[in-house]
Amino acid sequence: MAEVRPNPSGLIVSVQAPEGSPMRHPDVIAAMAEASLRNGARGVRLESPEHIGAVRRRCPDALIVGLWKRSFPDSSVYITPGWQEILAVWGAGADVIALDATERVRPGGEELEQLIGRARRELGAPLMADVDSVANGLRAAALGCDWVGTTLYGYTEATAALSPPAWKLLPLLRQQLPPGVSLVCEGGIASPQQVRQALDQGADLVVVGTAITGVDLQVAAYVQACC
């Protein structure tokens, strides 16, 4: 596993594929992750224990931000929503566990504060808070999250009318986050120029997914342009 240094900087590539895509095979995910790392990515963000394990075996020294998307009927939270998902992501070999840190009700009534405390106490796991607002980012940092990311800006009920990237959040979070907490810009970054913009606005790390590894969505967009 990789050493998670304080305030890392650079590019994190989100290597994910939608359900039903041939790109979702663990070997394909691992190959894309290795290609990203070979070309200078600081680390990769991966979904599901299966994919985390595949990349860990192929790239033993990779910095892996891991999560597990699971849907439940009693909650709209789906990014590593509960303790069992946290355990599975950590056990598969993630270096940092990403989880939804919004104010929404979690499946089964689990509480964010208890989940963060348990992960720190029992696992010693570094945590990335996926948030949608400045308030939720500051709360997550106060609860013990090491990284705060703008991942869910535009994707929660409270921010559905907004579109990422979360340019307005970055300078505010940079100004108010405690020293030592890394700020991550994630969501809607579609060009190298936007990566530079995010870093200039205070991000330590920038996560890029669809624009690099989203073959299904990228091809569909180009085909649509032909119609």
Rank of each mutant, 00 (worst) to 15 (best):
G109I: 04
V184G: 07
G40W: 08
Q224I: 07
V195H: 08
G82V: 14
A54E: 02
A62P: 04
L99A: 08
L138V: 06
P26A: 00
G188S: 03
M23Q: 15
V65S: 04
G214A: 03
A31Q: 15
S48W: 09
V28K: 11
A98S: 13
Y155E: 07
E19R: 14
I189L: 07
P26C: 00
E50F: 09
Q16C: 02
A141Q: 05
E111Q: 15
A98V: 01
L138Y: 09
Q114C: 12
S9H: 13
Q84A: 15
W68R: 12
R118G: 08
D27R: 13
R106N: 03
P107G: 03
P81T: 02
G124Y: 06
W90A: 15
W167A: 01
S14F: 00
R104P: 06
I79E: 01
R104M: 13
Q176A: 15
I97F: 04
A101N: 09
P73M: 03
V184W: 06
E50G: 08
V77P: 00
M128R: 08
L217C: 10
T159G: 11
A92P: 02
A161F: 11
M128Q: 14
M32S: 03
L177K: 05
V77S: 06
A41M: 05
V89K: 05
A161G: 13
A158R: 15
V28S: 11
R196T: 11
A62H: 04
A119Q: 08
Y153A: 03
L173H: 06
R120Y: 09
A33I: 00
S75V: 05
E110A: 06
G154Y: 03
E85H: 10
G124F: 06
L199D: 03
Q197L: 13
P26V: 00
D27T: 07
G187E: 00
P8Q: 06
I79P: 00
V219K: 11
Y78R: 15
G124S: 10
V65D: 00
A140P: 07
D216Q: 15
A161S: 15
T159Q: 13
E111M: 14
R42G: 05
R57F: 08
C227I: 11
V105G: 12
S48F: 12
